Computed example of a mutant assay.
Amino acid sequence: MPTSKRLKSQGIGDVLARQRELIARELLEGTGAGIAVGLVAGELRQGIRIWFSELGEKHGPVAEILPHGLKSHSVRLFFGSFSGSTLSKIRMAGEEETALARALFRSISPDRKVEIRGQDPLSWLVLDGGFEATALYRHDRHKPDTEEAIVATCREVIVPMMAAMAELIGYDPVNDPVPDTAPEFEGMLSRVVVNRRERNLRNRLLCIRLHGHRCAVCRADPHDVYGDAGSIIEVHHLEPLGLLSSPRPYDPVSDLVPLCPCCHRAVHTKRPVPHTPEELAEIMRRKDG
């Protein structure tokens, strides 16, 4: 390899080494699954490749980031050559999981030019190993081989894409119920059973991408108050899951709002049906006169 290309590859490799932990954390928070990050080192193009560590690079979805021109990244999501069992799981995904996966793709800005090969971007399905999604991310302020550009591409494109795949695969374990005979002594450790929809990390990711970090009631942004310790916005179901008389399709766009911890606790002081965000906001206005 010529010296200039070798140095360029080493430069991206250095960026990857420094940012591997940050990239993995961004993806873990959005997908709820372990992530592996590797280097794509070709003769002409060098970039980053990301996959689910549990599945391996050849047995599941892989996201690839490559420089495109002087200011852009091209992103490609595809499946490894031995993904048969993973694809079988995906084909078994229900209506709710499919809706959330599609919504995660739609949350990517139209400026990123997301395309799904041979399919409508609003009604796509992962039917076989030929599934491929692509996007183009143009960076206005950073060159594509910088740490800032790589992290931005991961956060804005790779995270929702891989989160969608995690939803279809089923990366979301549910705790087993606690036996009725469990002793009731204060201070003892116990397992808490939480509904799958309530604890799904992809719900939180999608809610914040669609509605932002500001509380829907008090309009406070925890980042403004707590700085780096401020990632504490919570996700609230507008229709309590426990009150559903029968299962219904889950709408990931309209069923969730972000609430700060105080407002979230406050809406649930009314039982069995919580206050709506509008009702709580009106209570707060009346209190302030």
Rank of each mutant, 00 (worst) to 15 (best):
E57S: 10
C218G: 02
S190C: 06
K270N: 07
A101I: 12
R191P: 00
A182G: 07
V253H: 10
V192E: 08
E148I: 09
L243K: 04
C260M: 10
E54Y: 06
D255H: 14
Q119R: 02
K5D: 12
A101P: 01
G130W: 05
P222T: 06
V151G: 02
V40K: 14
M165E: 07
A17E: 12
P160A: 06
P173L: 12
E156T: 09
S85M: 11
G38Y: 02
E156Y: 04
L259W: 09
A99V: 01
I116D: 08
G187T: 05
G69V: 09
T153R: 06
E278N: 15
M188W: 06
G11N: 12
L259Q: 06
S4F: 11
E198L: 13
R102Q: 05
R141I: 11
E54A: 14
C207T: 05
R199G: 08
L136N: 03
L127Q: 14
H268Y: 12
N203M: 04
D128L: 08
A24S: 15
G242T: 12
Y226A: 13
I12Y: 01
E26N: 07
T146C: 09
R202M: 05
S245T: 14
V157S: 00
G13W: 03
F52Q: 00
R112V: 08
D120K: 11
P179K: 04
C207S: 01
R76D: 00
I208N: 04
D172Q: 13
V75A: 01
E148M: 10
S107N: 05
I48Q: 04
E167Y: 03
R219K: 11
A36G: 09
R199V: 05
C154S: 13
F185C: 03
D251F: 09
C218L: 02
V193S: 10
P249M: 06
G56L: 02
R265M: 04
A229M: 11
S9L: 07
K270E: 13
G129Q: 11
V151H: 04
P2L: 10
Q119F: 01
Q119Y: 08
G30E: 12
K89Q: 15
P274D: 07
P2R: 10
S231H: 15
E97H: 05
S85G: 08
A103H: 00
P261I: 12
N200S: 07
P252K: 02
F131L: 03
P2W: 04
L122S: 15
T146S: 13
V75N: 00
